[in-house]
């Protein structure tokens, strides 16, 4: 299998991961499509340097989350991505609005958190261990624990204020 084929297989296997990260960092489907495209592009660009020191999923999370932060700045400037060879990629829209509603509620809940906390929540709900979260984010395992308990408190007080 050549490099491109290996990459495509890896992307296909982790398509959900890319989609979910894009969904957390964007609040509309257009931006989400742009972000998915940009993540795949940057994954490919850095695929060469992927040295397997970390697992494929750790590397993918890192690239996807890092690209998302920068995409946020561009999206704020209301610039859209160019279509591929003149034709836009048409993602299937969700079968119903249920997924969109769930994603919206999720985003609203984490909206008041900073980008580091948002990233940690994203990895926590993905059932990543403290060790994996530390590896992806680059903070210590102890710090991950401290941050998660702070996030819990923040979300709880946010909920109390709303009630």
């Amino acid at each position: 299998m050549d490099k491109k084929e290996t990459f495509i297989t890896a992307i296909k296997a982790n398509e959900g991961l890319i989609y979910k990260i894009a969904a957390v960092y964007t609040d509309n489907t257009e931006d989400r499509k742009d972000l998915v495209q940009e993540i795949v592009y940057h994954l490919w660009k850095s695929f060469e340097s992927f040295n397997q020191k970390s697992s494929l999923s750790t590397w993918m999370y890192r690239v996807a989350m890092n690209v998302s932060i920068y995409h946020l700045k561009v999206a704020k400037r209301k610039v859209s991505t160019i279509p591929i060879d003149g034709e836009a990629i048409n993602f299937h829209e969700p079968e119903n609005n249920d997924l969109e509603d769930r994603l919206k509620r999720f985003r609203q809940s984490v909206d008041k958190l900073n980008l580091l906390e948002k990233g940690i929540v994203m990895l926590y709900v993905e059932n990543k261990s403290h060790q994996e979260i530390a590896e992806i984010t680059g903070i210590s395992v102890t710090n991950v624990g401290t941050k998660i308990s702070r996030i819990k408190d923040k979300l709880k007080s946010q909920l109390t204020k709303q009630q």
Binding site: D34, E38, T81, I82, F91
Partner: peptide, 22 residues
């Protein structure tokens, strides 16, 4: 349950400079 990316689309994504928006 969603399968949005097929090999052709992924291949196109790797060849286009999406950061053109930048």
């Amino acid at each position: 349950n969603q399968q949005n990316l097929n090999p052709q689309i992924i291949d196109k994504m790797t060849r286009n400079k999406y950061n053109a928006s930048l």
